[in-house]
Every structure is written in C-alpha cells, then in structure tokens.
Design a protein around this nucleic acid. Structure first.
Lengths: 245, 245
DNA sequence: GGCGTTTCTCAGGAAATTCACAGGCTGGGC
DNA sequence: GCCCAGCCTGTGAATTTCCTGAGAAACGCC
C-alpha cells in the first residue's frame, strides 16, 4: 500500500494502514541517530537498540517490519544477534551494515534469505532504498508498492535498476542512478546541492560540492540528450526534475 | 493547519490549534534577538538558549516543533548539542546556522531526514521560509499547509520555486523570488522599503537602499507586464501587492 | 596484474545575477 | 502651474554561480 502524502511524497504503509516499523541496531550513537531521523522522515516508525540484548527485547515488543543491524556490536556479534532475532521473528528481513573490508563471504552467508546489506560508509539514499526494497519484497505492505518511478516519459526501476527515456534504455553508473532516483522521488521540488550531497553521497564524503554539478551534467547528457530537458537548474537554489514542456 | 489572522497574514498552527514552538540555540545575543523577534512576529512561540546545556533543558521543558541551531557554540560544539537534543526529542527537525565556509566539512552527516541549514549571513525571509518548510514537512501541524501562495491570478510555489501569472510561467532570480514571496505572504499590506531590506536582504547587507526599488522594478516587468498591475507604490510608505482591478 | 570503468578534482570559460550610479519621471504640496 | 522629494529604470561592471573538458586516482573485473 502506498499513500501520497500532502507534500507529494509517497509513503509506505503496512497492511493495517499503520506506518512501517523499523528497528535499528547499532552502537554508534551518531550513525543510529542519523538513520533514525532519516527513516522517521520517510514516515516510518523507528525504534533503536544499542546492543544485542536490547535488540532482542525490542523485536519482541516492537514487532518491526524490518531490522537494520550493524554487524559489529559490543556484546554479541551480528550473527548471534541475528540468530536470536530470528528465533523471535523468523520472517523479519534484515539490512546489515558492514565495514567495506569485512568482506562479502561472511555477509553472503547471512543474506542467504531475503536479507540485504550495505557497506559503510553508505549514503542515506542507499539505505532507504534497500530498506524499501526489503519491505516491499517481504510483503509487509499488503498492496505491493511499485518499484517503478516515473516522471513524464522517464522511468526508473528500483529493483532492476533499469532506466528508460521514451522507451529507450539508458545505462547509468551507480552514482548517477542514485542521484536520479533522489530527484525522481522528489519531482517538482527544488533540491539544493547540499541536500543532494547529504542524501546521495556517503555521510563521510569530504569532497567538493561541485561533484553534484558534475553528476547533474552527466545525467543531462544521458537523460536529456535530444529531448526536452527534464532536469532544471534553479540558480542559487538547486535542481529539480519535472516532465518536459 | 493555517489560519488567516486579522491582518491578513497566514499563520501556521499546530494540530492542537496552539502556535508553533521554535527553540533558538545561539550564543550570539544579537543574532538570537533578531531571530526571536522575527519568529515571534510570525506568530510562533519562541524560546532561546545560549549554550548547549540550556538547550537540552529547554527542549525537555518546551518541547519545540523545530530547533534553530548555530553550529558554533561556546560550551559544546554543535554536534554534541544536536546529539543530546535528539536523545530528548528524536524527531524534532533542526535548522542549522553555519558560516559559509564551514559548510562542506561538518554539515554533511549532520543533516538527516528533514533537516536543513542556512549559511550566514542569511536573510530573515530565508530562515522563516526554511523553518516553515521544515515544520510543514515534519507533520507538526496536522493539516499540512500548502506550499502554494496565491494572490489573484498570481501563484508562487515554495517547493518548485515556480511562479505563474494567469497560468503563464515566469522566471525569477533568487532575490526576485524572495521579494515576491515576502510581498505575497503579506498581501494588501504596505511594506516599507526598510522592512523589505531587513527581511529579504541578508542582515549584513551594506548597500544602497534603492536596491529595493530596483528589484520592485524588475518584478513589475515580469509580473505586471501587460496585465493590470498588482504591485503598487504607496509614496512615502512602501509597496504592497493585491489582486488586480 | 592489467585494463576498462567510475569517481572525483581542478580550472577555464560562459552565463546569469546582483548592484551602484545617474539621469529621467511623477505626484502632490504650494 | 511649479518644484522637489521620492521613485523609476537604463547602463554597465563586478561578482557569483554554473557548466564542462581533461586528467588523476580508485575501483572492479577478469
């Protein structure tokens, strides 16, 4: 089930019409808060736990639709936490947070089911998208939300990562894809370069703000080439996407 | 929920019909005062805190709908304050105030979800607009306010920054946009050049007062061209906007 | 380890915007 | 009808903002 909020953003709802519930299990307060705030803003109900014991308690009481689990925790490792979570709630999908070098072999074993993972440092856009995907596939929301975003004759499939303009398939790199997705999830809304940077680039990105300009430029070459432009610059304010003409 | 005040200004109200509450956290007394006065005049309830400890206390008692947070504070840096605020009130949206050059290092990673920031020196119009946006999207006011302002056949969308007159789209620069927004938020009310300067230009603007005349002139060329004029001069008093005829 | 791809920095140039200045215009008091 | 403060607006220059090519560095895939 999806609902269009007054601001025009699409919200994810559960079968009973209540907001989706997410449990965040992470001992780094800063990260945990960053995620909480972001997910709340997505319209979800969030609860967070700082260690494994708390997580198990929370999953029992809170009955989340999905769990974000940092695999490095102070009192138990992620695997034990996972095991105990699963004992409580076998079907709940889990999004693992992991360091880049804490290689894929371990994670691969964990994510065998419907689970997924992102590596630190991640972008908020990525976490939100993965979570949406997990929840969508888990069937927590009764009416399946579409994975297809569209603005005018431009479409973007969040599952297959396929992008088309006027039926024509377009190849995008990972960053280009995330930028376009963020724009398309906020059509007709001006997004500042700072907002884009905070959302699409990873939280520890320390580079120049003009990467945003650069990637907008890349996108335009691929998206708006030969067509009426959909990506618009609002000088001094930011960028927005809207149907051509 | 919006209400039209007796003077014709639109006010923002919370679900319970009470005014919106804003907490200002800033150690520069002058700036803090300026903001307080401005926000009170907007019809909001304002409380201010000069340091982090006070801020934490205030957020606990006052339960603000939004926080304005200067990231440079005497006793704690903005990040710690933010963290402690969030522990008290996880969902409260924050508007960060920051120096222009400090932007790129630290702010990334702070702004999550609905948060936003403005760089010093800012214009009051900008701060108010951002705050309104933050509160509007956070859901503090039960009936969400529209992002669309309209006076006669003139409309201004604060989200898309789109302006139309009689259905015809009009391109405005950033300053023109802010000036028009200020006028349109105060329809049928005479605004003096001094008021406009104080509100639309940044607080450290040191230029000639006749920029206001200049920008009114620009606006007229774009807004009132060929139509019955909506922007009127009250000689010796100021300007006002009202529907044509 | 090599090679193509992707990400990002840097810097030059183009374009839009902001603003000062100054001369012209106007309304209203006399 | 005259005058002047107050207002309007054309011109142009400084500044800001944005766009984009070139190339270095990092990454990922055999």
């Amino acid at each position: 089930m999806t609902a269009i909020s007054p601001q025009g953003r699409t919200e994810m709802l559960r079968a009973d019409g209540k907001p989706v519930r997410v449990l965040i299990v992470d001992d780094e307060a800063a990260l945990s808060e960053l995620l909480s705030m972001t997910l709340r803003y997505e319209g979800w109900e969030v609860r967070s736990a700082g260690d494994g014991a708390e997580a198990v308690r929370a999953v029992r009481e809170f009955r989340p639709d999905a769990v974000v689990l940092d695999v490095v925790l102070p009192d138990m490792d992620g695997i034990s936490v996972l095991r105990r979570l699963r004992r409580e709630e076998p079907a709940v999908p889990v999004l693992f947070l992991t360091a880049r070098d804490a290689v894929e072999d371990r994670i691969a074993g964990l994510t065998a089911g419907g689970d997924d993972y992102v590596t630190k440092p991640f972008s908020l856009e990525e976490v939100v998208a993965r979570l949406r995907g997990l929840i969508r596939r888990s069937g927590a929301s009764s009416v399946r939300t579409e994975s297809l975003l569209s603005v005018g004759d431009l479409t973007l499939d969040e599952d297959s990562h396929e992008v088309t303009r006027a039926g024509r398939s377009i190849h995008l790199t990972a960053t280009e894809f995330e930028l376009l997705r963020y724009l398309m999830r906020n059509p007709r809304r001006v997004l500042s370069k700072a907002q884009i940077l905070d959302r699409v680039w990873s939280y520890d990105f320390g580079g120049q703000a003009n990467v945003v300009e650069l990637y907008v430029s890349y996108l335009r070459k691929k998206i708006d080439a030969g067509c009426s432009p959909m990506i618009h610059t609002r000088r001094g304010a930011g960028y927005l996407i809207k149907p051509g003409e």
